[in-house]
């Protein structure tokens, strides 16, 4: 009690206002906090609590244990694999393109064009993106048809299927690569030209420059952004749903079916499913934020 009132006094002094107005100052953010509580925290909290309850509301770990059913584990696993593959490939390709446009000695107009396009493409996700890839690499898609016509090569005869793991990864890359480009651009700007010049003067090879100068600076943002891409793909559903309907068993599509019609026949198991998703995206986002804080040291 004494402690809290003394902090209030300090706060009041530092803000240069009287006692009565301190409470009022907090009221200024009250609408926002209430909104966040109602539409962000309570709904999530409800699921988290429900994940640890049985049908009668008693505490249980049974739902968490039930997540180990083969079909659920398989759904998590394929989601993790698709997200990881699209994040790693998207990260590498996105970084290469961003580096090429920013530091590759190409004409100046390329960079703003690339950035604008990335802004568009990173937001061009969901059902329309699925349509675009069906028209490109689907069974009657343009690229599929052209390959057959000109090279007599039917990718579907050689095991490719757009409605599969790699099909989903290729489609996700359409928003993953641009996101990587957008986030990595400032970090690549942070690579000072003098570092490259100094290392060249000192006789370093290109490999040595990357190994001992560029990578130690870049790796937190590279890894961090890759983790962000992972979470981005992990929570995605519309693209996969538009592409495959509900035939591909990724975790978001399973959860979608569970919300629609309780396909697991266990409400609380559904909550545990959601909790598992929050834990996975939460972990990769926390790691991203931590790595981002590390990488910002070099961007001043």
């Amino acid at each position: 009690m004494t402690q809290s009132s003394s902090t209030q006094v300090t706060a009041a002094r530092s803000a240069g206002v009287s006692f009565g107005r301190i409470d009022w100052a907090w009221l200024g953010v009250a609408p926002f906090l209430i909104f966040a509580l109602l539409f962000l925290i309570l709904p999530t909290g409800f699921l988290v609590v429900g994940a640890f309850q049985d049908n009668d509301g008693n505490f249980t770990l049974k739902n968490i244990a039930n997540l180990s059913q083969p079909s659920i584990v398989a759904a998590y696993w394929i989601s993790i694999k698709v997200s990881a593959a699209s994040a790693v490939i998207g990260g590498l390709v996105g970084f290469s393109i961003a580096y090429a446009a920013i530091a590759g000695g190409v004409p100046r107009w390329i960079r703003p064009t690339l950035m604008t396009f990335s802004g568009v493409a990173s937001n061009f996700a969901g059902v329309p993106l699925a349509f675009a890839f069906l028209a490109t690499l689907g069974r009657t898609g343009l690229v599929t048809a052209l390959l057959v016509t000109y090279f007599d090569f039917n990718i579907y005869q050689y095991g490719f299927n757009l409605l599969s793991f790699w099909g989903l990864v290729i489609t996700y890359l359409y928003f993953q690569i641009p996101l990587m480009i957008l986030i990595m651009a400032p970090a690549i700007d942070g690579l000072k030209r003098e570092w490259r010049e100094a290392s060249t003067i000192l006789g370093a090879t290109t490999w040595q420059y990357w190994r001992y100068v560029a990578m130690p600076v870049l790796w937190p943002s590279l890894l961090g952004t890759t983790l962000l891409l992972f979470a981005n793909a992990f929570g995605a559903i519309a693209t996969a749903y538009g592409l495959t309907g509900s035939s591909l068993n990724i975790i978001t599509i399973l959860l979608f079916a569970q919300i629609r019609g309780d396909v697991l026949h266990d409400q609380n198991l559904g909550y545990a499913l959601a909790l598992g998703m929050i834990v996975i995206t939460g972990c990769s986002n926390v790691a991203y934020i931590w790595l981002r804080a590390r990488s910002e040291r070099w961007q001043r």
Partner: peptide
């Protein structure tokens, strides 16, 4: 931190919570 939470909690989880709450 609060404004970043929607990036952590997937939309499908949020709407699941809405439907229950």
């Amino acid at each position: 931190f609060i404004t970043l939470l929607p990036l952590v909690i997937p939309a499908i989880v949020l709407v699941f919570g809405y439907l229950r709450l």
